[in-house]
Deep mutational scan, measured.
Amino acid sequence: NLYFQGLKYMVPGARVTRGLDWKWRDQDGSPQGEGTVTGELHNGWIDVTWDAGGSNSYRMGAEGKFDLKLAP
């Protein structure tokens, strides 16, 4: 699974964008943008601060869902 392989790169400072299971509307800005991981992966959740200004926790394994992917 590509998403599980990418988890080791989901570290503080990593750049991310919305992924396969995104369901959080425009939390990442409008139009959709990139963000920066600000915390360690914990119980399948990870913290992100978006360039647009907001921050929140997103699923990276929790509930079998992956809200994020590494930015290109």
Rank of each mutant, 00 (worst) to 15 (best):
L70G: 04
G29R: 04
E40Y: 14
T36H: 04
D51F: 04
N1Y: 09
G33C: 12
A71N: 07
T17L: 13
I46R: 00
D26C: 13
T49K: 12
S57T: 12
M10C: 09
Q32D: 10
A71M: 10
R18Y: 06
G61M: 00
F4V: 11
V16P: 02
T49S: 10
G35F: 03
G6H: 15
D51W: 01
F4A: 13
Y3E: 15
E40D: 10
P31S: 08
W24N: 06
D67M: 03
A52N: 11
T38N: 08
A71L: 12
G6F: 15
V11N: 07
L7Y: 09
M60T: 01
R15P: 01
Y58G: 01
G64L: 07
G39K: 09
D28N: 12
K23H: 07
V37L: 07
D26Q: 09
T36R: 07
H42S: 11
D21E: 04
A52W: 13
A62V: 06
G19A: 07
L68H: 01
S30L: 13
Y9E: 10
S55W: 12
N56I: 04
L20R: 14
D67H: 02
L41W: 12
M60L: 07
G54L: 10
N1V: 11
A62M: 05
L41E: 06
D21I: 04
M10E: 04
G39M: 06
G33T: 12
E40W: 14
D47G: 12
G64M: 09
S57W: 10
G64A: 07
E40I: 13
A52P: 02
H42N: 12
Q5I: 11
R59I: 02
N43R: 10
N43D: 11
R15T: 02
K69I: 11
P31M: 08
E34N: 11
Q27A: 08
G6W: 15
G53L: 02
T36Q: 07
A52Q: 10
T36Y: 06
D51M: 03
T49Y: 08
K65D: 02
M10L: 13
G19R: 07
L20Y: 12
T17S: 10
L68Y: 00
A14T: 11
G33P: 05
A62T: 04
N56G: 15
E63N: 11
W45E: 00
W45M: 06
I46Y: 02
G35E: 01
N56M: 07
R15D: 02
W45I: 03
H42D: 10
G13E: 03
G61I: 02
P72K: 13
Y3P: 14
R59N: 01
S57C: 15
G64T: 04
G44M: 03
Q27L: 06
A52D: 08
V48N: 00
H42F: 11
Q27C: 08
